[in-house]
Design a protein around this nucleic acid. Structure first.
Length: 298
DNA sequence: CAAGTGCCTTTATC
DNA sequence: AGATAAAGGCACT
């Protein structure tokens, strides 16, 4: 399957898959191999087109956010020198449209964990509770269903390295498997409404709700603030913040909900309806140039 | 190589 | 409301 990428439709597949929105992609030679709700497939990028196998073109366009008009988005978020520099560095990076259920569980697991550790947890969860499929002679696992995780014991979940997150994943799985919340339906409602619904799940606070809103529900105004974004804001945007908030951020304490909301709202008001894109570019920019310099080696 | 630090935070408890 | 502590364990230095 070939998909043409014109000059008006840039894509950086490597950047999009490699650092931190989705945790299950692996590179083998030039191919990226992944398993989504569509099953296992592989994809690679040539200069001006995508080549994929075992997946439909329409799904690829949807999953990789190819319908997002990046040139327009860049024009809208390119409000200052810092974002414009980040856009230059990671040009073609796109926000994925992941399966909301997988995204929700992944980010519940992700709280207070490093990216390599998150990948390890998710891999174990899939190996233990996902369905086995075969693709090109290799074994793969689907992401576990909500029922599979609802039926798992806390001890089994802990064995996947979830620690105290095991009970949150279990609780969240029970709510979804009961049908009490329809995650797909959240794609149809506003960002505020979706976030409010997500906050009802155990283990989901503002940060996780924003990540799920952005990386799976297509709420492009969501502006998740993690430790890296906090550092990026502190480094480049303190003059846009109230004096008191800026001072508080310099301490190493974690953000209160009120502080989180102020930073996230700053993002939305400064960058507008595509603030989530600005967030992703700034996040990667900060990881690359920040002092903490720990780049993920998958 | 051991020990220390940090991690795409949330919840419980004051 | 707002501050504070506690919560796996893994990956990296």
């Amino acid at each position: 399957m070939r998909i043409h990428l014109g000059a008006d439709c840039p894509l950086n597949l490597e950047a999009t898959l490699c650092c931190g929105q989705a945790f299950r992609w692996k590179k083998q030679a030039e191919w990226w191999i992944g398993v989504t709700e569509q099953g296992p497939f592989k994809i690679r990028q040539h200069t001006s087109h995508l080549e994929s196998e075992n997946v439909s073109a329409s799904y690829v366009k949807e999953y990789f956010g190819l319908k997002d008009n990046l040139p327009n988005i860049y024009a809208r978020i390119g409000r200052d020198r810092v974002v414009r520099e980040a856009i230059q560095e990671f040009s073609g990076l796109r926000i994925l449209r992941q399966d909301p259920w997988e995204c929700l569980v992944s980010y519940v697991c992700a709280t207070y964990k490093s990216i390599p550790a998150i990948k390890s947890m998710i891999q174990k969860l899939c190996g233990k509770f996902g369905d086995e499929t075969h693709f090109e002679g290799r074994s793969h696992h689907s992401f576990p269903t909500s029922t599979a995780l609802a039926e798992a014991t806390i001890a089994e979940l802990e064995q996947c390295g979830l620690g105290y997150r095991a009970k949150y994943v279990s609780g969240t799985a029970r709510i979804v498997s009961k049908g009490a919340v329809d995650l797909e339906q959240l794609r149809q409602v506003s960002y505020e409404q979706a976030r409010k619904e997500l906050l009802r799940f155990p283990g989901v606070g503002y940060k996780v709700a924003d990540c799920v809103s952005l990386f799976s529900l297509g709420k492009l105004e969501a502006f998740p603030v993690d430790v890296w974004m906090r550092r990026a804001i502190l480094r480049h945007y303190t003059r846009h913040l109230p004096r008191k908030l800026a001072t508080n951020m310099k301490s190493e304490k974690s953000l209160s909900n009120a502080e989180y909301e102020k930073l996230s709202q700053f993002g939305r008001s400064h960058f507008g309806e595509y603030a989530g894109y600005a967030q992703e570019y700034l996040y990667h920019h900060e990881r690359l140039h920040g002092l903490g310099l720990t780049i993920d080696q998958h």
